[in-house]
Design a protein around this nucleic acid. Structure first.
Length: 302
DNA sequence: TGGTAATATCTGCCTAGGGG
DNA sequence: CCCCTAGGCAGATATTACCA
């Protein structure tokens, strides 16, 4: 156990204390000085289980994940209450930090979103061999928060489809380059999808699609066109998840000439609305081709 | 500006099991 | 037997939207 180091840093720790964690290089075993009955609770230690490591790994892959998302993703066999308590323990042990999601979906207190701290990154390096420096830590910029959270929701919707036996063999690979270029080198800026999804419909060959989450900030010539052109060169179909149906109309107009240029059909790139996917699922939402026709995403039956 | 509704989180208490 | 922790439940707290 190595999550117990900075015991004296905070007399009373607040929820957003994440920055001072993980400065321990030699794990000082302070097992002797624990008369915690008198003094107020300091930093709690926790024994990392396999599923905890897995949660840290998902935080690495998705950058930030909300409480309920993390519960569904990593703690499906225990109650939400217990999962949330476990997440708070990981936070209090210093492996993760939390802040408000700032999501305003109706009334009520917004959910927390979690992210890795330095000691969480170190735990990942030790257990999974991921290079410490390449792991993003700290709270995400507000500008990117919604983007990350929507990507997780789409992934969960795909898992639901797998659970319902609509698809099988699901593999969801996030494009980590997305935030790598945010962090340091935006020199080459290789176009990369937010995620690459592989799966198979019943009794058919596995397929692969590229997923792009649009939160409405793409510009046509500067962002969208080079991105879609790069995607089309891969030959894979493209799924675009937008914020609203008017936005679909805009993106369709931008995309259609690119498809003609690449000499592929209007079904190569399809569009759906994020909220509809969350409510009805991947295969319950309406997907539009660039010509405005609808598709259920399923392969053509012969 | 202040009150109410809604929703998530936090704190405290209890219980069940596992090890020493 | 004692101590520790995870899991579960209930009430209090926190944060936000809505409305007069």
């Amino acid at each position: 156990m190595d999550g117990d180091s900075s015991s004296f840093l905070s007399g009373k720790f607040d929820n957003n204390r994440f920055d001072k964690a993980g400065l321990d290089k030699a794990s000082l075993d302070k097992a002797s000085l624990d008369r915690s009955g008198k003094l107020k609770g300091k930093k709690k230690s926790v024994v990392l289980m396999e599923r905890d490591i897995n949660a840290l790994l998902e935080l690495y892959l998705h950058r930030t994940i909300s409480s309920s998302q993390l519960a569904r993703l990593c703690f499906p066999d225990i109650s939400y209450e217990t999962a949330r308590k476990r997440l708070r323990r990981l936070q209090q042990a210093g492996f993760t930090g939390a802040s408000s999601s700032g999501r305003m979906e109706g009334r009520g207190r917004p959910e927390l979103i979690y992210f890795l701290t330095a000691s969480g990154a170190r735990a990942l390096e030790q257990t999974r061999g991921i290079s410490w420096e390449t792991i993003p830590t700290g709270p995400p910029h507000t500008y990117h928060k919604e983007h990350f959270l929507r990507l997780v929701d789409v992934r969960l919707a795909m898992e639901d489809a797998e659970l319902a036996h609509v698809i099988s063999g699901l593999e969801f690979t996030t494009g980590r380059e997305f935030w790598k270029e945010l962090a340091s080198d935006l020199t080459e800026a290789e176009e990369q999808a937010d995620a690459t999804i592989s799966f198979a419909y019943a009794g058919m060959e596995p397929v692969r699609v590229l997923l792009e989450i649009d939160t409405g900030n793409f510009r046509q010539t500067r962002h969208w066109e080079p991105k879609i052109r790069a995607f089309l060169r891969t030959g894979y179909p493209i799924w675009v998840v937008t914020g609203s149906s008017p936005r679909i109309l805009t993106l369709r107009k931008w995309t259609q000439p690119l498809l003609e240029e690449a000499e592929v059909g209007p079904g190569k790139c399809v569009f759906a609305v994020y909220t509809e996917i969350v409510e009805k699922g991947i295969y319950g939402a309406q997907w539009q081709r660039t010509d405005g026709s609808f598709t259920d995403l399923r392969p053509i039956k012969l």
